[in-house]
Design a protein around this nucleic acid. Structure first.
Lengths: 328, 328
DNA sequence: TTGAAAGCGCTAACAG
DNA sequence: CTGTTAGCGCTTTCAA
């Protein structure tokens, strides 16, 4: 196809070893020879074949990423942050989408390994011991983001439990007497890894239970709209919906507005994640900032450290914070 | 590192050629030998090194994609569609982000070529003859999406000119007398490829000019919010803002709501693209459906056809349509 | 039906 | 300073 180092060697009348020294700034080469080689390389438009280089080096300088879906705002922001950080460190990023299909996830990871990426960043949909063993058996390091798999596997995320607790306390401080935790992903508990939502639930429940005089309800299925309507029309108790994800909060808001409810006068809504879609929504949603950019940066840093054989903290928590809107 | 075909050959007491025949379903091998080889391969957890295979085959079965930014809804949807289609055809997708930096774009394309992707899907920020020559000089095919570069380069997109004209006609049919075309990207005309916006502008202008009794204005800079305010407070002429992108329309809507205007009673707004953020916005934005999923699918199909040496239509237009909302 | 040898394009090790 | 040789893991070709 293109020009190879062999061609350059022939044209310059030197060996391929010398060409390599010139092209890769290696010592033990006469300046004039080097210059001559670089010149002809440039003239011919030589470009090294990274595939061949990787084969001999045993490193591709690329990272694999496996996420659910790029249409999800959270992942979009995460990927952007990963790309930028990886680029800075000289790594290429290979993004793949598993669409919440556990088998697909395994396939993708295997494909990435076969393509010899140096490490993988994973937002897993799989869980359990088999999957853990699978990951640990891989010949390259894996960095898990969001849904923890097992203590041994390098993980980065926020303290979901505490974040949910903080959120609830904030809601309670506004005088709400009935708090409904809207968490449809709980319905997929059996077949998916929903670690983060489970932790949020636990944080919600533990905080709710130690508070007097409040009613707390959990909605754990995907036909939540009908249930929301039921609760909101039941009586005059001051009610708030705490949604385990901004998307659910936006759906809830849309629904409540649709049936003529004023927010927050009639009913409160709180979200989780602070996705950037919120920018165009009124009233502004009160939510929890999930520092996704920081997570992306740290995920790449940790992963490259692992690749280089360094030790890292196997469970890194980054700080969340409450974003005050006008919906609670 | 891992198990290689050599190891298997040694263990099974055969040559590497035979192992290859077994592993890749090639003929001229005794069934028993084949079975024995496959069995040990499985036991040892053999996985072929795709790098090595690509090196000898001269094909990587992967596609490069270069877009502005994955946080942009339009690209997010496009990428999803590309990933899914490519996967179906057995191709891997390498997504990279250029962040509207022309030099970065060139670098990324070169990197992808060096990594020997078989073809590239490109939403270009560069333009002009030099860039065209650069693309045509690449050793692999390129499929351009959105911003056309030159007639010779394979392109796919909608008929932006006609879409803008259709939109304006629809707006006029509602009795608006002053139409303001909001197109901030025009400000970057010199340094970026904004082909699609220029075509939209042309479609807008040509349609506006052949209509009597209406006033038409173009806003072609990024400090458009202040100008929007000015126009809307000027007099009582029935005014509509036609925004060359839903994001601008959402910003405009936010701004107008912020100063107490009712939409569409006081002022009309129309967007372009039908990004999925619109789902949560009230009133629903009237806009133009840019069939991004279809574009993704066709882009991959065309590119793989080019890779396989087939002929394709070098300028493929897909159909847009007007999405009726409640903002006009 | 199988083996042996060559080669993809590059880097690394050792000799000169 | 430079050349030679070997080899990364795979596929392909030709010969047996």
């Amino acid at each position: 196809m293109g020009i190879t180092s062999k061609d350059i060697a022939k044209i310059c009348g030197v060996s391929r070893g010398t060409v390599d020294r010139a092209l890769n700034n290696k010592p033990r080469i006469k300046p004039e020879t080097k210059e001559r080689i670089l010149k002809t390389a440039k003239e011919l438009g030589y470009r090294p074949d990274l595939l061949a280089r990787s084969l001999v080096k045993g490193k591709t300088m690329s990272l694999g990423v496996v996420v659910f879906d790029v249409r999800n705002r959270y992942f979009a922001q995460l990927l952007n942050s990963i790309e930028i950080t990886a680029k800075k460190k000289g790594y290429f990023v290979n993004i793949t989408l598993q669409e919440k299909d556990p088998e697909m996830e395994i396939k993708l990871i295997n494909s990435l390994v076969d393509r010899r990426v140096d490490g993988i960043i994973l937002c897993p949909v799989n869980k359990g011991e088999t999957f853990q063993k699978f990951l640990q058996g891989l010949p390259i390091p894996v960095m898990v983001v969001g849904n923890q798999i097992a203590p041994g596997i390098p993980f980065i995320g926020i303290d979901e439990y505490k974040a949910a607790g903080d959120a609830l306390e904030m809601i309670l401080s506004k005088g709400y007497k009935r708090i409904i935790f809207v968490c449809p992903p709980l319905a997929d508990k059996e077949k998916e890894n929903i670690y983060s939502h489970e932790k949020r639930l636990a944080g919600f429940l533990d905080t709710a239970r130690k508070t007097n005089d409040i009613e707390h309800i959990v909605i754990d299925h995907w036909h939540y709209p009908s249930e929301i309507k039921k609760w909101v029309n039941k009586d005059n108790k001051k009610t708030a919906f705490f949604c385990s994800g901004d998307t659910f909060a936006l759906e809830t808001m849309k629904l409540l507005k649709g049936i003529g409810k004023k927010i927050p006068a009639d009913v409160g809504i709180m979200g989780f994640d602070y996705i950037d879609t919120l920018k165009y929504v009124t009233p502004a949603l009160t939510t929890i900032y999930n520092p996704v950019e920081e997570i992306g940066v740290k995920a790449v840093e940790n992963l490259t450290n692992l690749i280089e054989g360094k030790q890292i903290n196997r469970r890194l928590l980054v700080k969340h914070k409450i974003v005050a809107g006008a919906s609670i």
